[in-house]
Structure formats: C-alpha cells, structure tokens
C-alpha cells in the first residue's frame, strides 16, 4: 500500500461554492499537518488512578462531604484505573473497586464491603454487597441500602435480607455515583417506618 496525501478534489468533488471549498481546504490542510491519532497503549485505556486518589486536596468546597466522597471516589478510582483491588479470597471475581462499610452503634460488629463493577452501556452500576454480622431482622422488616449526600439519604439502591453470618447481595443502580458522598444500610419496616442505620461508609 502506498502512503500518499489525498487529493481534496478527489475526496469531495469539484462542485462546491468558493467559501465552502475554502473552509474544507483549511480542514484538509489541518488534517495533513496534524497527522494520525496515536493508538492508545493499554496502560492508558482508563483514566489515571492517581487523579482520583488526590481528591481530598483538590477543592476546599463542601468540607463536610469530602471524606465520604473521597472514600467513594477513591474506590471508584481503583477500577477506573483498571487496577486490582483484591479484598478477600474471591479471586474468581476479578479486579473490582470496593468500599468498606462499618457498623454503627446499632450494629457494632457488622461489616460490609461493596464492590462496584463496570458501568454498563445503559449507565447501570452493578454492586456486590458482602455483608456479615448484621443484627437479626425483627418480623416485618428488611435491610435497605441507600446512597447519601452530606449524611442525607437521597436514593435507594435496593432491599435485601441477610443470614446471621455472611451474605452476598447483588444490586444494580443507575445513578451517577460521583454525585453522592456515601452509602448506608438501614433496617426498614414493611409499614414504611425507618429503622436504625446499621452500616455506613
């Protein structure tokens, strides 16, 4: 294959009015001068991890939100960079970003990790929640996971029940995760009453 500069007349035909032709000629020349776009190496397939890890120092606004947002953002960054972040003995699940959730005073021994998968084309984030030592559910209640902003609940991610030991729950959320500052897990009642918050990021 010979490498040759294309001829503009051949590309577009010779029937354009003057101003339009001048415009396309400028683009044509710019393309020739710019050269081809380089192929991205695998190492640049995703945005840099370091960019998000430096989040807490980036902007002074919203100081109350920063620590939680940083936790979420840093977790997202791990996967955004394609990095491995192995949390447990489940190598079959492959590299994931993850957030750790800690028990509140209402559930001091509870613990959870939330793995965030790759967002699908439609904009859904698959979440895998691995939770253990949640207090038993009273009759007529269930657990709910919510996204929060500045400590306020803003979106529900799903509901579930759990064994006394460890339970894995799979959820899927369509939200823009970067707009929230954290997660909580709460006990809710079927009649609509909220229960105590049991876990938070």
């Amino acid at each position: 294959m010979s490498r040759r500069a294309p001829d503009l007349d051949n590309l577009i035909g010779g029937h354009l009015p003057g101003p339009e032709r001048d415009r396309l000629t400028r683009v044509h020349e710019a393309l020739l001068r710019a050269g081809p776009r380089p192929e991205l190496p695998d190492s640049l397939a995703r945005p840099p991890e370091v960019a998000v890890r430096r989040l807490p120092a980036a902007r002074p606004a919203r100081p109350r939100r920063r620590p939680l947002l940083a936790a979420v953002a840093a977790a997202l960054a791990v996967a955004a960079a394609g990095g491995a972040y192995s949390l447990s003995a489940h190598p079959d699940e492959g590299p994931r970003r993850a957030v750790t959730m800690h028990g509140t005073a209402a559930a001091p021994t509870a613990h959870a990790t939330l793995r965030i998968g790759d967002r699908d084309a439609a904009g859904n984030w698959p979440l895998t929640l691995r939770v253990r030592s949640l207090p038993p559910l009273p009759a007529g209640s269930y657990y709910s996971m919510y996204l929060t902003n500045n400590g306020h609940i803003v979106a529900r991610c799903g509901t579930f029940k759990a064994d006394p030991g460890a339970t894995v729950v799979r959820l899927n959320v369509p939200y823009r995760l970067g707009e929230y500052s954290g997660w909580i897990i709460r006990r809710d009642f079927l009649d609509g009453r909220p229960g105590p918050t049991l876990l938070r990021t």
């Binding site: 991205l40 995703r46 945005p47 960019a51 989040l55 980036a58 953002a73 823009r176 995760l177 970067g178």
Partner: peptide, 16 residues
C-alpha cells in the same frame, strides 16, 4: 465538583 463520570468522558475525548 468532583464528578468522576465527567472526568471519564473528558479522558475518553482527549486521551489520544
């Protein structure tokens, strides 16, 4: 405003 999605969009647009 710390929007990761926006960062990813901009990255995809300008990485090359």
């Amino acid at each position: 405003e710390r929007d990761l999605e926006a960062f990813e969009i901009l990255y995809r647009r300008y990485a090359r």
